[in-house]
Amino acid sequence: MRTVLTLVKREIIDHLGYFVGAALLSALITFLMVSMVLGMEGRELARIVPGASIPLVSLAVVGLCGLGVAQMYTDRTRRISALLIVLPTTRWQIFAARVATGLLAILILVIPLAIAGGILMDLRTGEVPLYVGVLGDVLRSVFLVCLACYAVGLYAGWDRRSLTPTLGVLPVVALIPLLVVIKGFGLEVAGILVVFIAACLTATWCRFASSSL
């Protein structure tokens, strides 16, 4: 456990910009959410929120994909794992620490939103017609979309030796949130995203475990 924590700490310091970005983005979204919810009528709110959320969501998913790419790409170019693996670590610990770091960045983004969303829902209950459990569904979808984009980044970052071709994953990253936009926040979408994430992480692990370092 101590090894993984040391590795997570290293990942966080190396990619501190992404964590600061996630915190700032989360604060910005929370601020906009609070101002809009408290300053608008229910109907107006329902019209504006989806529009305002598109650029912010895009920023979040591209940023998380970028984090995944950066973790793997810098590993390859700086031969970080080649050094780590000859210390008392295993490939599995290095990979697990990397994914844990990504999860931490996602949680930094999502947890403040969940708290603010919960409070606002309590405040405006009854004004906007919503079903019970909508917040949970939305947060689950946001979390899975973020994780899926991050997992795509990890996969692409290790796969490519040059940074430019990794831009090729951007269409995939754009498609992931669209899946939620089109199909909604239901369990079927969550199922699809879970399978997609599992496939990406497994493929990345297989590459990482079998590659020369």
Binding site: T3, I85, P88, T89, T90, Q93
Partner: peptide
């Protein structure tokens, strides 16, 4: 299959 213990 070198473990962290062995690597140490």
């Amino acid at each position: 299959q070198l473990t962290a213990q062995t690597r140490s």
